[in-house]
Design a protein around this nucleic acid. Structure first.
Lengths: 122, 122
DNA sequence: ATACTTGCAAAACATTTGCAGTGAG
DNA sequence: CTCACTGCAAATGTTTTGCAAGTAT
């Protein structure tokens, strides 16, 4: 069973306060302002548990370690601006991808990232 | 200046023979069939150099370490088997993505990854 | 010869796990 | 009272780096 601990609350609060994807080390630093003795291993364990529970979601940018954010949105994709490097949510989805796979392959999920210029960088 | 060594040749050959993105450890194992004493550090050093030279390209999938493939291939996507974790090239492409982006955004590239079961793992 | 390369081992990182003690239900 | 949770340290797993020896040009 899942318990409600001070540590877990501090970690969730850190993500809520940030409003942007945070690195595990950033979550750790932020949550330590609430609980000084908080261990980094506990942050990782909670990230894993919260992710499994669907409360938070990993945001993986090529080259960097995974960041985490609250799972506020439903299925969506990402648009990364080549100029400002910011990542935006794209709520459209091309739909079924089965026809793209080689014969004999079964598709049951997909991930799409668009690259280009955002409206502010045109 | 860039030299042509046996090691570099073996590494490039491994990627040519595979025809799919390989992990550094897979490149190492394959290239060792040609040069038994090949060190893993040498594989990493060559990957870095070949990437900088534009000969190979990294394929970064969420959750696991970067794979590498020859940069010769034209535009394509990837399929990752949830069972055996291998990654395959998908030469089909859904095409124009502009309509998915928010108004005011200009799309000039995209990356797509499919997840599911490969023919061997059904 | 020169200086880029290599193999090995150790280092640098990010993440996970073992364990004994702690605390929520 | 129980057993999930925690902190700490040690263990993993991946990629990088220091160094002395090797080798392509």
């Amino acid at each position: 069973m899942e318990r409600s601990t001070r540590q877990r609350h501090a970690i969730r609060s850190a993500l809520e306060a940030a409003g942007r994807p945070l690195l595990p080390s950033e979550i750790h630093a932020e949550a330590q302002r609430e609980i000084a003795a908080l261990g980094l291993a506990t942050v990782y364990r909670n990230i894993k548990q919260l992710t499994a529970a669907g409360d938070i979601r990993p945001v993986e940018l090529p080259g960097d370690p995974a960041r985490y954010e609250l799972a506020v949105h439903k299925h969506h994709h990402h648009f990364r601006c080549k100029s400002c490097s910011r990542v935006f949510d794209v709520h459209a989805c091309p739909g079924n991808m089965q026809k793209l796979a080689p014969p004999g392959f079964k598709v049951d999920g997909h991930e799409l990232t668009l690259y280009g210029l955002c409206s502010g960088c045109q």
